[in-house]
Design a protein around this nucleic acid. Structure first.
Lengths: 192, 192
DNA sequence: TCTAAATTGTATCAATTGATACAATTTAGA
DNA sequence: TCTAAATTGTATCAATTGATACAATTTAGA
């Protein structure tokens, strides 16, 4: 494969793009905003992402997924009680000073902000994957007798997703983190 | 007050603007989109809304608030059990074929879609007002012995808001209305 | 009937948008 | 060393954006 080498690092550039999308939202992030942050020009941009902004956003979601939830998902395997892992995950999401700051959940935001079915479904796919992992861990814990959920099993996924995406909006309404945490604790009791 | 009369009806025009904002989202609704739907031209638009799109959106939220939640809020006074009113309100929100269709909650969407603090706070103000009315009715019902909530009273508001805004996103993930309704029922049990 | 105020519609602006064309540059491998 | 392929950067495009200017029109009240 002859030819000039890429002068930029693809993953680093994707991370920069995530920053722009996250802060400004999909629509408000212009291709020039993205190029500037990614440190690449027009030529490289449309060479790497022939589908333009849309393709870049999908790749940024894939990148986000491979970076952020990883820690929680791996903890599910080492920590005995999955409810504690979920709790911490939700705590971070509800905390204005945490990793998600006031930007909110990258995927939940996309579901509400974007009409394009491809982008919306990509975002949905990622949150569902995480929710599935949560549910699977909860099931293992239930069968091991560690937890005694009072919520019917077929509701676990939607209940978790509903709590998750609710927090993403409610954190803007209730600025007191301790109150948000109290609601998370109360809502997760149905699994304990 | 001499001068030409308005050729358009202000409330009807606002309703048309709501339709555009609701379907396209704030950013994607251009001033020309709005003018076309409202049936007015540039001159009238910027005469009536000197603050442009921003001012129009705030007025559209006020209009939305004065039209849509009214029915539920008045039912709180006639129906004995407020939980049933809240349940129906949430049912409608989660139903892709209901009044809110796939557009979602006008205010919840705004909280996620819009960065502008004025617009965001207006949206927050309206959902909080509705949640307050729900909580007040629940308190009356509790004191009357109609319901025996198991959730601490200081959480009522955030819990209701969290459920509400969660449904607004989760309805895109779980398309089966009956499953959404099951989660609503389960989540509202803490008030019964 | 006259007049000043309110409303309307058209023309127009500069800035920004997503996107393409293409020459210049770089580089692996023959 | 040569060559074809890959990458980069600049120039440029038409379309759309929010917004203003202003002449024309309408109308209530003196």
């Amino acid at each position: 494969m002859a030819g000039r080498n890429k002068i930029y690092n693809e993953e680093e550039a994707l991370d920069k793009a995530i920053g722009v999308f996250w802060e400004k939202g999909y629509e408000n992030a212009s291709s020039r905003d993205l190029q500037k942050a990614m440190g690449i020009g027009m030529g490289s941009f449309y060479l790497a992402y022939k589908g333009g902004k849309q393709e870049l956003f999908i790749k940024s979601m894939d990148r986000f997924f491979s970076v952020y939830p990883t820690h929680a998902l791996s903890m599910l395997k080492t920590i005995e009680n999955p409810v504690e892992v979920i709790r911490q995950y939700y705590y971070v999401m509800a905390d204005p000073n945490g990793q998600f700051r006031q930007f909110g959940c990258y995927f939940s935001n996309a579901i509400i902000q974007i009409a394009d079915p491809d982008l919306k479904n990509t975002a949905i796919g990622h949150v569902v994957t995480v929710a599935n992992a949560f549910s699977a861990a909860l099931l293992r814990a239930k069968e091991a007798g560690i937890i005694q959920p009072t919520i019917p099993q077929e509701m676990w996924n939607i209940y978790l997703l509903n709590l998750w995406t609710g927090l993403n909006t409610a954190k803007f309404i209730e600025k007191d983190v301790s109150k948000m945490k109290a609601v998370i604790d109360f809502s997760l009791r149905v699994f304990e």
